Computed example of a mutant assay.
Amino acid sequence: MHGSAAILAIAMAGAILPSSASAQEPAIDRADRVAIFKAAGAVQRDGRWVICVDDPATSGAVIEQVRDLNGDGRPEAVVVEDGSFCHGAAGTGYTLLGRQPDASWKVIDFNSGVPEFLDTVGEGGWPDISVGGPGFCFPVLRWNGSAYVPDRHEYEGRRCDPE
C-alpha cells in the first residue's frame, strides 16, 4: 500500500490522523479550541496551529479528542502534531491538557509518540498511557498524583522488556 491508500488504512485501524483531517476533530466551541491550542503552546502559522514551530514540514496540530479521562466531570483534550523534526522516529507527538475548575486549560503531559489510554489507572482515576512509536515494546506512563511517570513496558497488553 502506498500514499493515500496507506493513510486511509491506518486511519481505519484507529491510528491518529494527520492534522489535515481536521474534520475529525471533536465538536468544541471556538473559544475552547483557541484556549486549548494556546495552553498547548501552539501558535498560528499560515492558518493552522503549530506547536513545533521549527518544523517546516509539519501539517500542524489537531485536537484529536476531548473527553473526561479521569472521571472528575471536567474534560481533558489531546492535541497531536506530526513531524519527525521535533518528534523523531515516532513522527508524532501529543499534549494532554485538563480543564481546570476556573475553565482554563492546563498541560498534564506531553511526549513524542502516539498516546493510547489504557484501562489501568493511577492516582485519582487517571488512565495509564501507552506511548506508541517504532518497535514492539512501548513505555507505559502512570499518573502519580502530580505527573505521568514511567511505570512499565507493554506490547499488546503484555509486559515486555525493551532491552
Rank of each mutant, 00 (worst) to 15 (best):
V140G: 05
D128K: 04
C137S: 13
R99D: 04
T120H: 01
H153I: 06
P150M: 09
S104M: 04
G157M: 12
T95C: 08
G132W: 14
G93I: 11
L118M: 11
E116T: 10
W143E: 00
A147L: 00
S104L: 01
E163D: 15
E116N: 11
V107A: 05
L118W: 04
D151G: 01
G133P: 09
E154I: 13
D119T: 09
Y155D: 14
D151C: 02
R152D: 08
T95F: 08
K106Y: 01
E123F: 02
Y155K: 05
D109V: 00
V140P: 03
Y148K: 08
V114S: 13
L96I: 03
V140A: 10
D151S: 15
C137L: 07
V114T: 15
L96E: 08
S104Y: 02
F117C: 04
T92F: 13
P101M: 13
N111Q: 14
D102I: 10
D102S: 12
T95D: 02
A147F: 03
L141C: 00
D119M: 02
S146C: 00
D128A: 05
L97Q: 08
G124P: 01
T92Y: 09
E154V: 14
E154C: 07
D119N: 14
L97E: 06
Y155P: 03
T95K: 13
W105A: 02
T120I: 01
Y148D: 03
G132R: 15
P162Q: 09
Q100S: 10
W105K: 06
C137I: 09
G93T: 13
G132V: 02
G93H: 14
D102Q: 05
G122L: 03
G98Q: 04
P162W: 04
A103D: 13
Y148S: 01
